[in-house]
């Protein structure tokens, strides 16, 4: 078992005394973690809404869009960050470019599933009521696609919360910084607490998003991700 380097001291998994005096450290990391995640998911939504709608409108765009972001999605995050570092440096731009690239695939895919699931009858009815295409999209199709969009937002958010830890290697990381600290200092407490906090954050945010969905889309119940 790993232990403190020179002293005959066994490092406990969680040193509660140390933890109690270092709460601000975890609080700051948690805030950075949430900020990085929120920016990636919101940025992904801003990009994927027009992309997804365009791919739905013009089916010839569908496969190229899914293929390009599918390739990006396949690239391991550490490699994607490393490929960006020579151009965008170590820091926020590199991290967010990579994270947004990943969220776009999830969000576009779910947006397409949602738009495609709108029944033809409903579209015909909207047309018959005199909706122009844009109004039909905004007031009929997108609301009906909301459950699928929400499922995408949940998957993208939980995924991003996990991936943010890896940005510790490019100087950010949120809770990942503390995992990294635990690794290089051979110190269990920040490692274990940060890992548990990261999992807990993902699960709590996922539950919160389910709650938001229930309020915003009362007609959808439990469309699992």
């Amino acid at each position: 078992m790993a232990s403190g380097c020179f002293l005959d001291y066994v490092d406990p998994w969680v040193n509660w005394t140390w933890l109690s005096t270092h709460v601000p450290l975890f609080w700051d990391a948690l805030q950075q973690h949430i900020a990085l995640t929120a920016f990636a998911v919101i940025g992904g939504l801003v990009l994927s809404l027009p992309l997804g709608v365009a791919a739905h409108q013009w089916p010839s765009l569908r496969n190229p869009v899914l293929a390009v972001f599918g390739v990006i999605y396949t690239i391991p995050s550490l490699a994607l960050f490393a490929l960006l570092v020579p151009y965008t440096g170590l820091g926020v731009v590199t991290a967010e470019a990579g994270l947004i690239g990943y969220t776009v695939l999830i969000l576009v895919r779910n947006l397409l599933v949602g738009l495609e699931s709108v029944p033809q009858d409903v579209i015909d009815a909207a047309d018959g009521m005199g909706y122009r295409p844009f109004a039909r999209l905004v007031r009929v199709e997108l609301p009906l696609a909301l459950p699928a969009i929400f499922a995408g937002v949940r998957i993208a958010t939980v995924t991003t919360i996990g991936l943010v830890t890896i940005t510790a290697l490019i100087g950010l990381g949120g809770l990942g910084q503390l995992i990294y600290k635990g690794l290089i200092e051979n110190f269990h407490t920040p490692l274990v607490v940060a890992t548990v906090l990261s999992i807990a954050l993902a699960l709590v945010v996922d539950l919160a998003l389910i709650g938001v969905e229930r309020l915003a889309v009362p007609w959808s119940r439990g469309t699992a991700g």
């Binding site: 078992m1 996990g162 830890t165 995992i179 635990g182 890992t195 999992i199 993902a202």
Partner: peptide, 25 residues
């Protein structure tokens, strides 16, 4: 079966690797 996917997604691979390293050396 469905919740396993959610927990699996929430696992930070970096943390899991480092914890495994601390346990097994």
């Amino acid at each position: 079966a469905i919740n396993i996917s959610n927990v699996g997604r929430a696992l930070p691979s970096f943390g899991v690797l480092v914890i495994a390293f601390q346990v097994f050396g």
